[in-house]
């Protein structure tokens, strides 16, 4: 199991399993872990494509990534999932933490993106 896959598995576990505790904290914890999973996947991609890109900000990476992948849907998927998860990882006074449904939607997307990123050589 890669680090990205393990992080995504943890993200899903803390959201789905009340026996792990984290009462009330799980939406933020899951969002933090889910974003880390996506970022690990991106780091692995840049390692193969252009290692110095890992020094750039994520925003820059997500602008530049379209030059490196042929799959346009993958680019849009990465930007959408990262933006949604990032929003959930910052404090916004007028917003609730993400719901279980929203989280699972993002995690499914990250799951698919990780596979497609690993296929881009």
């Amino acid at each position: 199991m890669t680090t990205a896959e393990r992080l995504l598995a943890w993200a899903r576990a803390v959201a789905a399993h009340p026996e792990l505790g984290l009462q009330g904290t799980w939406p933020r914890a899951a969002a933090l872990l889910g974003r880390q999973a996506l970022e690990e996947g991106l780091d692995g991609f840049w390692m193969r494509q252009l290692p110095q890109m890992r020094m750039a900000t994520r925003a820059t990476q997500l602008v530049c990534v379209e030059r490196f992948v042929r799959d346009r849907d993958l680019v849009i998927g990465l930007r959408t999932a990262w933006a949604a998860l990032s929003r959930a990882c910052h404090h916004h006074p007028y917003e609730l933490a993400p719901t279980a449904h929203e989280l699972e939607h993002w995690f499914s997307s990250v799951d698919e993106l990780l596979v497609r990123l690993s296929e881009e050589v």
């Binding site: 576990a13 803390v14 792990l20 984290l22 933020r28 914890a29 872990l33 880390q36």
Partner: peptide, 10 residues
């Protein structure tokens, strides 16, 4: 009860 490593990440 959390898997080892989760706290360091969260």
């Amino acid at each position: 009860s959390l898997p080892d490593g989760v706290a360091a990440r969260v």
